[in-house]
Design a protein around this nucleic acid. Sequence first.
DNA 1: ATAAACAAGTTTATTTTATAAACCAAATAA
DNA 2: TTATTTGGTTTATAAAATAAACTTGTTTAT
Lengths: 100, 100
Amino acid sequence: MFKPLDPLLHSELRLAVMSLLISVDEAEFPYIKQQTGATAGNLSVQLDKLATAGYIAIEKTFKGKKPCTLCRITPVGLKAFEDYVAALRTYLNVKPDTTQ
Amino acid sequence: MFKPLDPLLHSELRLAVMSLLISVDEAEFPYIKQQTGATAGNLSVQLDKLATAGYIAIEKTFKGKKPCTLCRITPVGLKAFEDYVAALRTYLNVKPDTTQ
DNA sequence: ATAAACAAGTTTATTTTATAAACCAAATAA
DNA sequence: TTATTTGGTTTATAAAATAAACTTGTTTAT
């Protein structure tokens, strides 16, 4: 009847991060922070969780002299996101999306 | 960009309950328990929260000699569910459903 | 008739999670 | 040179989910 929802993705902020990374393919910490409206602390924690699960890859580089945290989604993360959406549909009484 | 998600509905069990009540219009506690796979304790707590918010109405009756807890969704609950789904779509990169 | 098992929940306690506040280091601006 | 800002991390707190234990009453077995 209802498929279980991946608890790692069933979180407003982590879902927003994943959604963002799917569309942009690579994003810096401050950009994600601005787009999601999250506090830096919360974002840091949630990014860590996604990275620990292998859903995103975090690369710490420098932009000139300033540190720069780059995030991108992984194939594992993309798959998890798609599975999550499919599971979610069992709760929404909605047919699968066929546009495109 | 991302619409906030009603925290009361962004919960696996409460969402399942609401989804169920939308399709059946009236359901007894044991039926909801069976359909969702929830424990009685957890279900009791989550039903209370939904009722307190006015999303569902709980009627305590008897079925012969046995107590019977009947649940139905309210107009407020239906509206909240629809709003939740609309908000969720902003995270899923999916066009609104136009089937039917 | 009495005890054991069961049904239908509720209450309470525990664990997990989310979130914010406090903190830190380096760079830039005054 | 001493604030101030940028780019975060760590730690503490609040909220939530969940399960375990309990209650009340009923049915079934002895």
